[in-house]
């Protein structure tokens, strides 16, 4: 999906002759709690939010029968790039402040709210075949190691943590998003990967987590914002409200996120 979206966007822009959206103000824009919500709500969310947001999206659809929630899960930087290139969306939830800043600096959203935080953990295949015990093992040349690419938030956090710990990692691959790194652990193709705690939780029995004390030095805050050109602003506000409600916080905490 993350790779298809820019193509679709390009197509839409081409066909529409790059015309501005004329129906912004004309659509009925009810307050979040007053009128019935309908139409489609498009949420761009960091790959690490895949499970929680899918779950919250289903609850949201159940509460609002006329509403269809569409998610685009990918690396936050890919999403930020898609948004600044004009991809139509209502809500953006980023895995770090830097990628949200890309969007707010472009004037496409304001007042992002931090709704969760996440720290890194080492994911190893079930049984920990390589006997990984901490960050220092990521420097072992004999192991196959996956780390996120420095361009995406989990890679930026990994760089911070490794620098703080004074470890020079010997990765075999720099993954394009955190879920791609996790998948390689699940398949047993890498001995260890630096991912978020929540990803280890989400992967269930196939993956085990090794705690990294140094990870406290690079805690990722997750901001969420309604986009300025949101085609469905009413539903967008309501969804952000749900994410930040007690119910949303509980779902996030169950998935291993820290909540404010």
């Amino acid at each position: 999906m993350s790779r298809r979206a820019p193509v679709v966007t390009a197509l839409v822009l081409l066909l529409a002759g790059c015309g501005g959206s004329a129906d912004d103000g004309t659509a009925t824009a009810p307050g979040p709690s007053t009128a019935e919500l309908g139409g489609t709500l498009t949420v761009f969310a960091a790959a690490s939010l895949t499970d929680v947001f899918t779950d919250l999206g289903e609850r949201f659809e159940a509460d609002h029968p006329g509403l269809d929630v569409q998610f685009n899960f990918a690396g936050s930087s890919a999403l930020a790039a898609q948004l600044t290139q004009g991809a139509p969306a209502d809500v953006f939830a980023s895995a770090n402040e830097a990628q949200m800043t890309v969007v707010t600096d472009a004037g496409m959203a304001d007042e992002p709210q931090v709704f969760a935080a996440n720290v890194l953990q080492i994911a190893v295949p079930a049984g920990n075949p390589a006997g990984v015990t901490g960050l220092a093992d990521l420097a072992r040349e004999d192991l196959t190691i996956a780390v996120c690419a420095p361009q995406v938030p989990c890679g930026a956090a990994a760089e911070d943590v490794l620098t703080a710990a004074g470890v020079t990692a010997a990765p075999d691959t720099l993954e394009e998003d955190v879920r791609a790194a996790l998948t390689k652990v699940e398949l047993g193709e890498v001995d260890a990967a630096l991912v978020y705690t929540t990803d280890v939780t989400a992967a269930g029995d196939a993956v085990e987590g090794v705690d990294v004390p140094e990870a406290e030095r690079a805690v990722n805050d997750y901001p969420i914002a309604v986009l300025a050109d949101a085609p469905n602003p009413g539903a967008a506000d309501a969804f952000v409200e749900l994410v930040r409600s007690g119910e949303g916080r509980q779902a996030l905490a169950d998935a291993g996120f820290r909540t404010p």
Binding site: R3, A81, A146, A149, Q151, T173, L174, E175, K184
Partner: peptide
């Protein structure tokens, strides 16, 4: 995978640079 010099071909470099 994606690692400069061993497996990062041009399309991968383009995608990550983007």
């Amino acid at each position: 995978g994606n690692f400069p010099g061993t497996t990062q071909t041009m399309p991968l470099a383009v995608y990550l640079a983007l």
